[in-house]
C-alpha cells in the first residue's frame, strides 16, 4: 500500500490517469490511515459491538467452548443483573470510591500546587518527589502499601501502637471493612496527586499578579484571595479532575486487585459483601474467576452506560467547555 504512494514509476502514472485528484487524495489518506484503522477496528470498535452480542448470550456452565457453546438468552443477563444485590452493591462501592477519591485528590493536588507556588529553594526537587509515584504502576504501589497496612508487622499499625492506639493491630487497615476503602483511596491519592499538582501549578502561575495586588489593596485576606481569585480561575482544572476522577473510579481495578481483592467481608442485611467490591473488579471476577462471559459483558455494558451518563451530567452541570 505504501509503495503505491511513495514509489514513482509505472504504477503511479497509471493511477494518476485513472483517478480524479480528489479520489486520489482520498485513497492516499486512507492508505496513511490503514495501519491504524485496521487495528482500531479489530481491537477497539469490534470488541465494543461484540460485547453487546455476548451480553445477550451465555456460556453453558458445562462448556469451555467459547465459540460454539454460546446460548442466546435475550435480555436474561440484564434481568439477572438488575436483581443482583452484589452488582448494585458494586455500583454503590464505585460511587463511594469516587466520592472519596475525587475531593481528596483535588484537595491534595491543589495544596501541593499552592505550596510549590512559593519562592522556594529546590522547587524542582519537591516537584520531582511529588510526581514520581504517578509514573510507577499501581500494582507495585499496592503491594508496598499492603505491607505498610498489614496487621502485626505493618509499620502504620506499629506507629499507631506507639501512641497507644491498638484498634488497627488485629486486622490491619485493609482487613477492617470500615476503613479498607479509605485506605485504598489514601494510597491512590498519594500516587496520583503529583499529576493534579502539575496541572494546578501551571494554572495558578497563569493568573495575573495584578489581580492579587488589587485585592490586597482592597484589604482582602489571603483566604479571601484564595476563594475569590484562585479557586474560580482554576475551575477548568477542577472540572477536568472531576472528569478523570470519575473515569478512574469506573475503571478502578488494579488498586483493588493488589490490595484487597474486593474484601474484606462486610455484612449487609445478612449477606456477605465486599467492602471494596467495585464494579470494575466484579466484571473481572465474573469473567476471570467465574467464567460467566455473558454476564460479565452485560455488566460492562451497564458500566459503559454509567460512563456516558456521568460524562453528559458532568458536561451539563460543571462546565460547557472542556
Amino acid at each position: 500500500m505504501r509503495s503505491r504512494d511513495t514509489g514513482g514509476g509505472e504504477a503511479r502514472r497509471i493511477w494518476s490517469r485513472t483517478l480524479t485528484s480528489r479520489g486520489r487524495e482520498n485513497l492516499t489518506a486512507y492508505a496513511f490511515l490503514a495501519p491504524f484503522l485496521i487495528i482500531f477496528a479489530v481491537f477497539l470498535v469490534y470488541p465494543v459491538v461484540y460485547s453487546l452480542y455476548l451480553a445477550l448470550h451465555q456460556v453453558p456452565s458445562d462448556s469451555f467452548d467459547v465459540f460454539g457453546g454460546l446460548q442466546f438468552v435475550g435480555l436474561r443477563n440484564f434481568a439477572k443483573l438488575f436483581t443482583d444485590v452484589k452488582f448494585w452493591w458494586s455500583v454503590l462501592m464505585t460511587l463511594y470510591y469516587a466520592a472519596l477519591i475525587i475531593p481528596s485528590g483535588i484537595a491534595v493536588s491543589l495544596a501541593l500546587a499552592l505550596l510549590l507556588n512559593n519562592r522556594l529553594r529546590g522547587v524542582a526537587i519537591y516537584r520531582s518527589a511529588f510526581f514520581m509515584p504517578y509514573v510507577l504502576d499501581m500494582l507495585v504501589i499496592g503491594i508496598v502499601w499492603t505491607l505498610i497496612y498489614s496487621p502485626h508487622i505493618g509499620i502504620l499499625v506499629r506507629l499507631f501502637e506507639s501512641v497507644g492506639i491498638t484498634a488497627f493491630s488485629e486486622k490491619g487497615f485493609l482487613g477492617m471493612s470500615s476503613i479498607a476503602m479509605p485506605s485504598v483511596v489514601f494510597a491512590n491519592v498519594l500516587k496520583g496527586a503529583g499529576f493534579g499538582m502539575i496541572l494546578y501549578l501551571s494554572a495558578i502561575q497563569n493568573i495575573p499578579r495584578s489581580l492579587y495586588e488589587a485585592a490586597e489593596i482592597d484589604g482582602a485576606t489571603s483566604w479571601r484571595r484564595f476563594t475569590a481569585i484562585t479557586l474560580p480561575l482554576v475551575k477548568p482544572i477542577t472540572f477536568f479532575m472531576v472528569v478523570i476522577g470519575t473515569i478512574g473510579a469506573l475503571n478502578a481495578f488494579v488498586e483493588v486487585y493488589a490490595m484487597t481483592s474486593g474484601g474484606p467481608s462486610v455484612d449487609v442485611g445478612g449477606r456477605a459483601l465486599g467492602a471494596t467490591w467495585v464494579t470494575g473488579y466484579y466484571v473481572f471476577d465474573a469473567f476471570y474467576n467465574q467464567w460467566r462471559l455473558g454476564y460479565a459483558s452485560a455488566m460492562s455494558y451497564v458500566l459503559l452506560a454509567l460512563t456516558m451518563i456521568v460524562t453528559v451530567v458532568n458536561r451539563r452541570f460543571l462546565g460547557e467547555k472542556d
Binding site: 469490534y46 470488541p47 455476548l54 473481572f284 458500566l303 460512563t307
Partner: peptide, 8 residues
C-alpha cells in the same frame, strides 16, 4: 471503560 474490552 477498560472492563468493556475484557471479555470480547
Amino acid at each position: 471503560p477498560q472492563p468493556v474490552y475484557l471479555v470480547p
